[in-house]
Design a protein around this nucleic acid. Structure first.
Length: 532
RNA sequence: GUCCUCAUAGUGCAGCGGUCAGCACGUCAGAUUCUCAGUCUGAAAACCGGGGUUCGAAUCCCCGUGGGGAUGCCA
């Protein structure tokens, strides 16, 4: 059987890195297992789902190379399947609806207790009901308590989940649970009046719902802590749980890999699979990513939208790599990995079980590493696009010239955006001067820096051969002749040419700025800047 | 309230009964270079608390504490 996994986002708001990491893990699992990676768009929330959100979602998947194998499934198109499933469950006596205008409820009754996910009654258990009120109805015992803050908690416990139930009353007597169950009418009936005395404790044998999570191991939950579940709303529309399960069956999903916010849902979903006579898939839950405050990301805040990373000049292969490493590691210390390497090394049992905080600084470092190792021909169009994006007519610049500039800047930039930030003086006619730099490097010490560039100006003016090599020779000779350190010469020049104190090597910079502009900039500085 | 789940440096990972608790980002210091970046070298920095089990626990169990989640019509 081939493995089939899916990414099932709801297109409400912008897809954030937490969502996309779920997609990455699914994709990696599918590829590592030779399985299929499918996409289902859960657009049943008509109020909040927008075409625009779907577009940005598809865009993000495409950008990151998360290609899916079959046509995307839109959940709204599956509505009739959901309705059929509800009908089936009612027919088979698993679900019921009191009347039109009421929700449809799936009952946790013995008919659904499959040994593959519900244990036999196992541990002797008791629930203290001395505080609060106890009610009974045909489906459940309902324990209602009020917290110190005044919140009311109702805890309905399905009769069938309480094996060998005995109810202890205030006088120490024990009454068989069946007595109470038989006496209940339609509504919640006060247990005290049914029994003639106040119940204080429930004694029973506890069953557990369980499944084997491929990341977390065996997970279980007392069956009595689960209540019947709504599968269709009052208006008849299917709720998430129902739609989700039915679609997974329809799509032949074999493995569900999702965030651990769904751990609890899984216990419920198992009953739905059973109620529609379908075999449940295997599950793996992994931790969510949290933001710098340690809180979960939310679409509502527009937090960490994937498109923002594209905008900021991160490379998709880097973001992919980085997100895969949030909660997963190959185990041998490798960090920067090609996609094929990750596919090869990926396994669910190496996924971490604790939440990962997103560390943007490390992402920037990693992006810098990617950029440094990147092939020039691959990088060139990305830079051109970004220049264009910034309103710089990149087409006007000679390809060789631009290539050389990229070469020089390649290991200095951490994002594509930084390239533009670092290199504005190569493209502009006028330079933006950093006043501090001008003061410190040119004006200080009675204009020592100015004197130096004045001296060098005449040498450069007479230089016919404007090449990196020639510039290096002339400037070095100048420094040596004057008994100056290279830094004493390079920095004043750098400020005059670039406006600031940071640039690639000075002769490379001079060369690329070009003879005309370089000389003009030095002359202008000499004309306009006066010693302190 | 009840239930589920998680917990190793500031951050991300490694460790899965015996390690001087390792790696990476970041931080700090030094080296190199005309500045920056990079590269190289070095440093500081962690097993949430308390009980057990064991000759021996970061590792297994229990109880706390803290974070996240669920608790009948969000997905």
């Amino acid at each position: 059987m081939t493995i089939r996994v899916r990414f099932a986002p709801s297109p409400t708001g912008n897809v954030h890195i937490g969502n996309i990491r779920v997609a990455i893990f699914n994709w990696l699992y599918a590829r590592s297992q030779g399985g299929k990676f499918l996409l289902r768009i859960e657009d049943t929330d008509l109020e909040r789902s927008t075409p625009q959100a779907i577009a940005t979602l598809l865009d993000a998947l495409n950008w990151l190379g998360l290609h899916y194998d079959e046509e995307a499934v839109y959940q709204t198109a599956m509505r009739h399947r959901h309705d059929d499933a509800v009908k089936l469950m009612i027919e088979q006596g698993h679900a019921s609806r009191k009347s039109e205008g009421e929700p449809t409820i799936l009952h946790l009754h013995e008919g659904l207790f499959d040994p593959s996910f519900v244990t036999e009654p196992r541990d002797a258990a008791e629930i203290d009901v001395s505080q609060g009120e106890l009610f009974a109805n045909p489906c459940a015992l309902v324990h209602e308590t009020t917290s110190s803050k005044g919140e009311v908690f109702t805890r309905p416990i399905a009769w069938d989940s309480l094996a060998c139930l005995e109810i202890e009353t205030e006088d120490g007597q024990r009454v068989a649970g069946s007595v109470l169950r038989d006496k209940t009418s339609e509504c919640n009936t006060d247990a005290t009046s049914l029994l003639g005395k106040k119940p204080v404790k429930l004694h029973f044998k506890r069953r557990y719902v369980f499944y084997d999570d491929m990341v977390l191991g065996r997970l279980e939950k007392p069956l009595d802590s689960l209540r019947d579940l709504v599968i269709a709303r009052s208006d008849g529309s299917p709720v998430f749980h129902l739609a989700n399960v039915v679609d997974d069956v329809e799509m032949g999903i074999t493995h569900i890999l999702r965030g651990n916010d769904h751990i609890e849902n899984t216990y419920r979903h198992l009953f739905i699979f059973k109620a529609i006579n379908a075999a449940p898939p295997k599950y793996a839950h992994f931790p969510m990513i949290v933001n710098a405050k340690g809180k979960p990301y939310s679409k509502r805040d527009g937090d960490a939208y994937v498109g923002d990373f594209k905008e900021k000049g991160f490379l998709p292969e880097c973001l992919f790599n980085f997100l895969a490493l949030c909660g997963w590691a190959p185990g041998d210390g490798r960090e920067i990995m090609k996609r094929e390497e990750m596919v090869k090394a990926f396994s669910l049992d190496r996924i971490n079980s604790s939440a990962a905080q997103f560390n943007c600084e490390k992402l920037e470092w990693m992006n810098g590493q990617y950029l440094t190792k990147m092939d020039l021909l691959t990088l060139l169009p990305l830079i051109r696009a970004e220049l264009k994006n910034e309103g710089i007519a990149a087409g006007d610049f000679d390809a060789k010239w631009l290539a050389r500039l990229i070469e020089l800047e390649q290991e200095r930039m951490r994002t594509i955006k930084e390239f533009v930030e670092h290199t504005s003086y190569f493209f502009a006619d006028q330079v933006q001067f950093d006043e501090k730099a001008v003061k410190k490097v040119l004006q200080k010490n009675e204009g020592a820096g100015l004197k130096i560039i004045a001296g060098i100006l005449s040498i450069l003016q007479s230089l016919a051969d404007w090449t990196e090599k020639a510039l290096e020779e002339k400037i070095t000779a100048f420094a040596e002749g004057k008994g100056l350190k290279m830094g004493d010469v390079a920095q004043p020049l750098r400020v005059a040419i670039t406006g600031g104190t940071v640039s690639p090597g000075i002769w490379e910079t001079l060369f690329l700025v070009g003879r005309e502009r370089a000389l003009a900039r030095i002359s202008r500085v000499l004309a306009e800047v006066k010693p302190e």
